[in-house]
Simulated assay, not measured.
Amino acid sequence: MLGLLAVVLALLAVASLAVGSRALSLETIFNALTAPQESVERSLVLSSRLPRSLLAIFAGAGLGVAGLLAQSLTRNPLAEPGILGVNAGASLAIVSAVGFLGVSGFAGYVSFAFLGAVLTAALVYLIGRPRAGSADPVRLVLSGVAIGAIFTGLGTALSLVRPQAFDQLRAWTIGSLQGRDASIILPLAVLTILGIALAAACSRSLDGLALGEDAATALGINIHRTQILVLAAITILAASATAAVGAIGFIGLMAPHAARRLAGAGTGWIMAYTCLLAPMLLLVADVVGRIMLPGELQAGVVCAFIGAPLLIALARGKKAVAL
């Protein structure tokens, strides 16, 4: 099944190269990737569509695994990276950098977005860390929601005080693969692989936590250390993806639930399926956004159209209980 999904992901990546305002044949795409001669098609593929496809694959995998970790850590099937305030912290950092420091250029935006996300995750853990003898994940959820709401309000206020920051806030709030600098692909790939490796190292501990704190302790699992490592993995994955493509929602909600239906209950297997399903969802959203309207609909908007009904169905379903 994983092999089949990998093939489907590869086909979607090819479709992402072919579909757009100007459709390209497979022969044209192959020539653009292999022939050294400069052409309009080669420029279109290498400078626009190929970077978008690679961004969708790495950012999608990061957002999907971050969502899985958030759901496992909080044992809440409705959780996703934004619930811990990471997206709000990244957006606030970008608005502050643009409005007060005059930062311009994508490298500067990415640096401040990542810094804001890391500091937000640390603040959320310090405020919501468990009391002695308790490992209740609800404290982390409430802390993340509260900090996220505060930072969202501050970011909106700053964007009104500093109008030049408004466009950047809007770009990161909506989320898009369009117009991103290809130079961020390698750093995003490295951070995504690092975050997924850290998440995979915590998979057995998360399986133990799913049995409850008492059972996990009896199995020799260090609950607090696991929470810190998982929160670090969420921060790395969500922050890098948010810095690269913006605060695209619902990928981290949809992909883990689809993966559970295919993989069962093991966190490691669910993570493997999520790494393939999440990029597939983001690629589909990006391609659909290109052809849905005469112009282009941002991938974050398409994900919201798909994810909002799913969220309502999960909230009303009988299985909307703690994991």
Rank of each mutant, 00 (worst) to 15 (best):
L211K: 08
G289K: 05
L191W: 09
A66M: 01
I94M: 03
L4D: 05
A70F: 03
T28K: 11
G317A: 12
R129W: 06
G144M: 09
L293S: 13
A66S: 15
S183D: 13
S48E: 06
A272D: 07
Y109F: 08
S47W: 04
Y125L: 04
P130F: 12
A320V: 05
A113W: 02
L293P: 06
L73I: 14
K319R: 09
S72A: 15
A15R: 03
L33K: 05
S53A: 15
G264D: 01
A117M: 07
L219M: 14
L12D: 06
P51W: 07
A255T: 07
A285Y: 00
A201W: 05
A247N: 13
S176P: 03
L17R: 06
C275G: 14
C202N: 10
A107Q: 07
A215H: 10
L11F: 12
L142A: 08
V98S: 07
I236C: 00
L297Y: 03
A165Y: 08
I223T: 15
A241F: 06
L310K: 02
V118F: 10
F166S: 14
A247P: 12
A247T: 13
S21G: 12
K318E: 07
R139H: 08
V245C: 06
R316P: 12
L310C: 09
R49T: 06
R261K: 13
S39Y: 03
A113H: 02
T274N: 10
G108Y: 08
I236R: 01
A18W: 03
Y273Q: 03
V19W: 01
A265P: 11
I291N: 05
I127M: 12
A320C: 05
R316M: 13
L186H: 03
A215I: 12
G128M: 04
S25L: 02
A308C: 08
L198M: 14
F151K: 00
A243Y: 11
L101I: 07
R42T: 12
G208I: 10
L206I: 13
I270T: 11
L219F: 09
G155P: 06
M1N: 00
V161R: 04
E38V: 15
L206S: 11
A201C: 11
G153K: 14
I251F: 00
L92P: 12
V230Q: 07
A233M: 07
A313Q: 12
I236F: 00
E296Y: 04
I184D: 01
I147K: 02
L282P: 10
V95S: 07
R42I: 11
G212P: 07
G82W: 01
L26C: 05
L78K: 05
K318I: 10
R131A: 03
A90G: 11
S48F: 02
A308Y: 02
